[in-house]
Design a protein around this nucleic acid. Sequence first.
DNA 1: CATACTTTCTGAGTTGACTCGTAATTGAGC
DNA 2: GCTCAATTACGAGTCAACTCAGAAAGTATG
Lengths: 200, 200
Amino acid sequence: MTVTTPPVGRRERNKQEKLQRITAAARELFAEHGVDEVTTQQVAEKADIGTGTLFLYAKTKGELLLLVQNSSYVDALQEGRAAAERLPDALDAVMAIIRPVVECNRIQVDNGRTYLRELVFGDPEEPHHRDALALTVQTEEAIADVLGRDDRIDARDAATLAHVVSAIMFVGMASPVNVARTVDDILQEVRDQVRVLLPR
Amino acid sequence: MTVTTPPVGRRERNKQEKLQRITAAARELFAEHGVDEVTTQQVAEKADIGTGTLFLYAKTKGELLLLVQNSSYVDALQEGRAAAERLPDALDAVMAIIRPVVECNRIQVDNGRTYLRELVFGDPEEPHHRDALALTVQTEEAIADVLGRDDRIDARDAATLAHVVSAIMFVGMASPVNVARTVDDILQEVRDQVRVLLPR
DNA sequence: CATACTTTCTGAGTTGACTCGTAATTGAGC
DNA sequence: GCTCAATTACGAGTCAACTCAGAAAGTATG
């Protein structure tokens, strides 16, 4: 028997299944053409639902992108945390966390930048947006953790520094100056900036 | 005789005058109602020009906001630079530069945040956008200058740190978490972050 | 001043995100 | 199974940013 036995009638199942179809449709279309080139109509059509229905599952097109990208972000964060564990040096460990996030964000540059735009300027009350913000918080916590392992950094500073690192990462990925840059270029730039923050 | 005698016929004068009318109209409407509540039609009407004409002077509504806010930013930056001059302490001096910028950005929170959104995610090729990016560069340079006055910071680090400070400032002003915060709250948060970067 | 040519202006038209009144579907009580 | 209330789906309609083909205004030349 399952512990949670909430409403699992046909209604709920239909809803879940529809959400799945929408997510899959959006993911494929966004990946192939980029968010800007895909209309919400196309997503609805591919998911085989009405155009209005789409907006019951994601209040805006931006929310739809957050929905799609959040799941890859989860994996990236997990991967980074694991990689950081083995690295004794604080800078190396921080970069190990950052790398998969940047890689995941840059699979398609426009989508990645739009994701960041929505993350910062979208409606923070929306569910997919809350998820995205939670991921950002988790990323900062992961960074704070590895910084805290360094004896020269006390716990309070670790949290503050993690927030700064997060800001550096954001600007590195979002900045128009970096649109043409490769993942490695961006990581190098981030590393240079993070290095000057850390005690030497 | 003037050194530069470029086309100063009626055509050029008309154009300048129209740009003035557009800027004034947009500034007033945006200030009173917020960018989101103002339509480009309203701006065009108030400036007494056709709706299509507006887009010859600012390619998008976002560009229009950049146009309007850039001029206040110029003043804020000037004010901050002057205030920083007298302050011997690096942290104090940096904050003196930042304060007027944040104040100017927060006169109307939504407009300020939208300005930042356009700055990062708008088309960097557009003229008003280039101006805005130039102001960001100047701000970083001003910060790098005052950091460079500190003997413990060499020139290269100063530039890198200035970029980091710029990122902190951006996130502080743009973050949805801070929408309800006062200017002083934000400045305090920025200060806390900048402090941990500086040599102690 | 007439003519040809260039630049600027214009607003009806297009586009696409999002809304909203109505219809269909589901589940509860009988 | 039937009735009713609540939830979910739908797509024609709305709205506002932005485009574009043709009109108007300015300038140069004989």
